[in-house]
Amino acid sequence: MPDNILTLLFAVLVFPGGLFALAFGLILRGLDRRAVARMQRRVGPPLIQPFIDILKLMGKRTMVPEGSNTFVFLWAPVVAVAAMAVAAAMIPIAGFYRPSADLGDMLVLLYLVTVPAVVLMLAGSASGSPFGAIGFSREMAIMLAYEGPLLLAVVAVAMVAGHHLGQPIALSLADIVAVQRQQGAFILDPMLWPALLAYLSFIPANLGFSPFDIPEAESEVLEGPLLEYSGPALGLLKLASALKSVVVIGLGIALFCPIGPSGGAGLLVWALQCAVVTVCGVSLAKAALGRMRIDQAVLFYLKWPELLGIAGLVLAVANL
């Protein structure tokens, strides 16, 4: 099926994965920096500053530290970008884009979402720097803590959607979106609010933003795994993290609030939703909170979001 392969390639490389997600992710990053600056009564950089940063990094040399594992050190960022480009192609945009089932279902997506964190761990340990090693252990700890709430929230939504479809569980994001477009967005269902909160609290930790920017804390471990990176390799890691914000926020919108109208307006509404989540969810927390300690963050996740996730699942199942 050459047609299908071409479509898939287009989805992964151009839209909505690849180039589009890259550009959109960088704009979201710029928006976030600008919003934080405004909250701190600063002017802030121009919206396209992240593009400029990436361009600058791409024009520099990548230094590979002595004593590092060169292969892992250089390929880890590539893997992160590739994984995120595929993941971005799997995110439906309500009314505008329906991912092909050939890309895989939500289980694949959940695995892909963890790839950047794993890459950071690999990169940290491959760099041979003690700060990278600390970043590794912190990334691992916080990942174990936030994966629980994520899975619980996703399963709660999938089970509710599956109930509407007459299946035990709906593992296709496209189906979950379709159900909500018929039955109303899940964000309006109070029974799913705990799951929504669990998902929202997962976002800053997964994206490595305050108050959970612990593995890459600049004033503590000198950006941990990123410490030894420079030039294009660092640029790729930054691209992967920009892509990840699109994936994680887009997944949240698909799970809870896919309300865009059909056609081009759907894309516009989706982009606006992403921007709102970025400013209200990420920038606000960044401006209002300090960093937690790793033990505090892990404890926090094991307490509140985990509880919310369990409550969300129980409520969702009890209500079927």
Binding site: Q40, S219, A287, L289, G290, R291
Partner: peptide
């Protein structure tokens, strides 16, 4: 202190 804690808004405010 606020900067080290990662609370940049407070850092900005005090410095302002």
């Amino acid at each position: 202190l606020a900067h080290i804690v990662g609370f940049e808004s407070l850092f900005m405010h005090v410095m302002e």
